[in-house]
């Protein structure tokens, strides 16, 4: 019995690290965007488009890392579109975000059709579990480098927001556009840049999906992870470090179903697979009631105002 629990826990740990990576990258992108005072719901589109571009690039060039870069650039271009349209007067960022979500997925499906069948070179994992003779531990500790990219980015973002001029300007723009303007900051430009950079991160998240886990391009690849990552930002209260923990929690809940199945416990499989979605709902309800979250929300967000 204890063996089974160990197996489930190891599978969940491995799953948490694996599944959390795209969540983390999208959430960091969204954090940066929202810190500047805008919401980009379109990051789901970045994720799917990034996945397709990464796969296609990796397939045609043979280099998965070139695919990652291409995915980031594609995400950046998509989000720059969002940022550019949102600076037009009387445009609602949420509506534009939904349009861009559909645009991103639509473009990915349109151009991605020829890449559903072929196999592209995938990203390699780093085996951190070599010290252990236990195959479960070895399996769980096979970590993709993009996970570390996410971790590094989280720390960098956290440091940047606190200790650099850009960081303070982004926070200022996100909290009080009037003050930012009074200091001669171009609010639209800050938001355009922050949204574009956020889109780059989300695009990389997409590359992880198609080049590592699940590791192939298909149209049902993301199943709404980009949207859940937006919810996760609220849960993490716009703090990049807390995004890491929140992403791991989402990852673990996503790994619950497969982990239980791996020990032969398949009762309620679909229910356990729905865990991340249920978690999203619970988190939304809880954070809607959390006054602390309301307090830490950037003041310029259209949902806060």
């Amino acid at each position: 019995m204890s063996d089974a629990i160990f197996m489930v826990l190891m599978a969940m740990l491995g799953g948490a690290i694996r599944v959390s990576t795209p969540f983390l990258l999208v959430a960091l992108g969204e954090t940066l965007t929202e810190k500047s005072g805008r919401i980009n719901l379109g990051l789901e589109g970045n994720l799917v488009l990034g996945a397709m571009i990464a796969y296609a690039t990796s397939y045609s060039t043979g280099s998965p890392w070139l695919g990652v870069l291409a995915a980031g650039l594609a995400g950046m271009v998509l989000s720059a579109g969002h940022g550019w349209i949102c600076k037009l007067p009387k445009v609602n960022d949420i509506a534009v975000g939904i349009a861009f979500m559909n645009l991103g997925t639509g473009l990915a499906f349109f151009f991605g059709k020829p890449f559903i069948q072929p196999t592209a070179p995938r990203l390699d994992a780093i085996a951190l579990g070599a010290w252990s003779s236990n195959p479960q531990v070895q399996q769980a500790l096979k970590v993709n480098p993009l996970f570390f990219v996410g971790l590094g980015l989280a720390v960098l973002l956290w440091w940047m927001l606190k200790n650099t001029r850009w960081g303070l300007i982004i926070r200022m723009t996100g909290d009080s556009a009037a003050s930012a303007r009074a200091m001669g900051v171009s609010v639209d430009r800050v938001r355009l840049l922050a949204t574009s950079a956020g889109g780059f991160f989300a695009g990389i998240g997409g590359a992880f999906l198609s080049l590592y886990y699940p590791g192939s391009w298909s149209e049902s690849l993301s199943s709404g992870q980009g949207l859940m990552a937006v919810a996760l930002v609220i849960f993490a209260r716009w703090n990049p470090i807390r995004c890491v923990w929140a992403a791991l929690l989402f990852g673990a809940s996503g790994a619950l179903g497969p982990a239980l199945q791996s020990i032969g416990f398949s009762k309620g499989y679909y229910f356990f697979n729905a865990a991340p979605y249920i978690l999203t709902l619970v988190i939304m309800v809880l954070s809607a009631r959390s006054q602390k979250a309301a307090h830490e929300a950037p003041g310029e967000l259209s949902i806060v105002k």
Binding site: I169, M172, P298
Partner: peptide
């Protein structure tokens, strides 16, 4: 015109033209 989410120190430093 202070930025509510920044601290007093952050508000002062960022208000400088040569931060």
């Amino acid at each position: 015109t202070l930025v509510p989410c920044l601290t007093a120190a952050e508000n002062l430093v960022i208000s400088r033209p040569d931060t």
